[in-house]
Amino acid sequence: MSDFEPKIVAFFCNWCTYGAADLAGVSRLDYPPNFRVVRLPCTGRLNPKYILEAFKRGADGVWVSGCHPGDCHYIAGNYHARRKFVLLHHMLETLGVEPGRLHFSWISSAEAIKFQEVARDVVEKVRACGPNESFRKAELGLAEVA
């Protein structure tokens, strides 16, 4: 298992966590290269489908991160997002998605260190889960290959 390199899809809001990742770069804070970032205006934009889509396409992990509650650039986007996350997180855990595969965090644009710490931890936790075998679609239909 030691040579298993997980693939992780990350959804960051533009204003906070994407900014934290920018700042981590400026500060040259290294972390594992295992995730690919999809930039969203706000975690409020995160349709739960995207998380399911990532897993269905074989992502070994998903990481969602946005502004701390109260810091939303759009006043309340992350509050609405949080309720969806609560439900989706519970649903996936109940259905047997390993807790280590799906991660949520609030990281402000000033928290580069927290970004680095969470990034490392997310990769380690997903690595520990091993490859996503149970929540990936075996064969992608033609229409879905885009």
Binding site: P69, G70, Y79, R82, V86, H89, F104
Partner: peptide
């Protein structure tokens, strides 16, 4: 929503 909604996993 409520500003103090709980979500410990985040």
């Amino acid at each position: 929503y409520r500003p103090d909604d709980e979500a410990d996993f985040i």
